[in-house]
Amino acid sequence: MAGAGRILLLAGPVLWVAGANVAPLVEMARISLLDLYPAAPGHAARYGLESYAAFLDSAIYRASFLHSLVLSAVITVLALLMTYPLAYLIAIRSPARHGARYLLLLIAPFWTSEIVRAFAIMLLLSNHGALNGALRWLGITEAPLPLLYDQFSVGFGMLYAVLLAMLLPLYAALVRLPGELLDAAANVGAGPWSRLVRVTLPLTRDGIAAGCALVFLTSLGAFAMPALLGGAGTTLFSMTIGSLFASSAGRWPLGAAFGLILLVSGLAVAAAITRLAPPHRAMMT
């Protein structure tokens, strides 16, 4: 009886994961093999690998894909460099009772929609925006600087969008760091830099790996931020995929194939990141 109850309780989550995550992917994989979708009435479906071959054949699509990979890697590194000191301050340097409050303050903006945040950044960076206004007020510039619709604005927006994905794993790793270890290192003469490189960083490698994997995957699939903040020269692969699904010429198979290529590539890189930085559980316990 207890076994049956357990199965019933498990059934919900399992069905949810299968229905909401696995089923759409399976359907996308099926569509990626079709010759046409949505198909006209009476069209006999034909399966093949043409959509995957189209990716390999097209230098334009491959360039867009590489652009996404490189930008995601850059965003990941920048996010790590910018967020690690912040997470360190909150987890290690601030009093324990305040840490959660600081974290909450940083998380609060993310309760709003990504679209709203993108438009807020547009207002900030526009010709008549706050940043250009401040630069002119300070006499640094006379004419507004073009800050929108280029790589800078895309990077700015995406970096902001992925902040949380990096901050939370880093905070979780840093907050578990035993303070005695840092004290012991200091007692034997290790300076701040030495403590950071030889104690703190190695012991938070699992948080770094998790944050980097999450940020890389999030950046790779980002759509709203680059679509709103980007310009004609900043098209990412996710936007190319989006345009294929907006086509009425039956281009969904190409979009589905490209989507799966992006997913598999992203997962492979994420797996490599976590493999490069395995957790040091033995030292933590």
Partner: peptide, 15 residues
Amino acid sequence: NSSLIDRAVEEVNAG
């Protein structure tokens, strides 16, 4: 129109 334009749109977008 759809078959040619849609494809060209993707290429301009990605190109």
